[in-house]
Design a protein around this nucleic acid. Sequence first.
DNA 1: GCATTGAAAACAAACGATTGATGCATCAGA
DNA 2: TCTGATGCATCAATCGTTTGTTTTCAATGC
Lengths: 220, 220
Amino acid sequence: MRADAAERWQQITRVATDLFRRKGFSSTSMQDISDAVGLLKGSLYYYIDSKEDLLFEILRDLHKDGERIIAQVNFDSGDPLTELRTYLKQCAVFGALHADRLAIFLRDFHYVPPERQGEIISERKMYQRTVATLVKEAKELGLTPPHLDISLAATLISGAVAGVHEWLHPDGPRPLDQAAGDIAEVLTNSIRIPSEAVVKSVAKKGRPRAKVSSKARRPA
Amino acid sequence: MRADAAERWQQITRVATDLFRRKGFSSTSMQDISDAVGLLKGSLYYYIDSKEDLLFEILRDLHKDGERIIAQVNFDSGDPLTELRTYLKQCAVFGALHADRLAIFLRDFHYVPPERQGEIISERKMYQRTVATLVKEAKELGLTPPHLDISLAATLISGAVAGVHEWLHPDGPRPLDQAAGDIAEVLTNSIRIPSEAVVKSVAKKGRPRAKVSSKARRPA
DNA sequence: GCATTGAAAACAAACGATTGATGCATCAGA
DNA sequence: TCTGATGCATCAATCGTTTGTTTTCAATGC
């Protein structure tokens, strides 16, 4: 094996990831990929078995990276809300760092041959279950509003953090760690008990109308 | 024009919507559509100009329906958090009722010819701007934590409610209106000031470990 | 009440282009 | 020289779309 064989493989997966993300899996042809790599499309089949196989390899790598990062979270602190916050922060960071592959996963996963889906699909369900468990623990400890629908809240939070990759970029104006922390904080806050004092006081005193008019808020 | 011409058109859009949702736009062939309708694929071109045109028509209809529902919200109550809650509830209901077309919009919108995208794209930006304005108003009134990043929070909330269509179904176990209300409540809560009393008291007293073990929470 | 007409609606056949994939030839480097 | 790596030519299938023809059926004339 030549020295640059591994590089070729990385180049192919990198190029394919970029194209799949931008154009979608089924709209990306092997011709597109081979053009970007600098090979003839037939030559790609020296490295892969099929187009779907290439997709599988890309998503399986994402799966592995995901497992590695989540494993760093400590779930034994004793405070479910803090654990949830830490966990969500990690998820947000992960989403920002692997936005391309995550977008492909969420949109084009169903193109992976069914018999190979099992190796990947477990990850997402694990995400949701982790959140669900932490939310449940928080409620049992009285840390959430008493009528909170924990299943609904968990699904909502899971979905929210799954969508973060669409707009949180590692090279954004704020440090990634900081922004991810804020995201986790806001999401965790969604199941906290709100301060009644503030809510009531403001509602009573009849605040003046905000500057932004109703018209401006509904443009055309 | 014959009486059933309008029915044919509805049948075509309905079938296409279902297929686009399940298989994706570019993986759905005109043959698939014509088979499901019961015509030869060439005959479809009596009703449409192109495949992309069909997608455009479907999404433009969604756009119109969206405008109609959002217009019902009263933005002059004087309480931005209540307005946000109402607005988000409407969005959740809308998402559940039009999950198919919404999924197509979020995934396959980029297949709409660029010159025709403008007629549709305004809608989503309006959603986000509405949320952003309400969040900003709430902060200015001191209804949110003082350090809240309003842009981040608004984006997060918008993304969360946009993903609701994936799991909230009109015929679910709970009445749609009720579930949507809960969703809006949780999301609105995410920018409310949390009750410090509860948080501190629990943190202090050193609660016992929750029943669910750390292992169970991270299944393989 | 029946035949005629004309447009709407669907069929039938084919178009060129592109798709994912294969087999074999070839080339370069160890 | 031998093998990993790529070029080259080509496959059958399918793609979206077009064209010309045929069928269907309501309105019309008598």
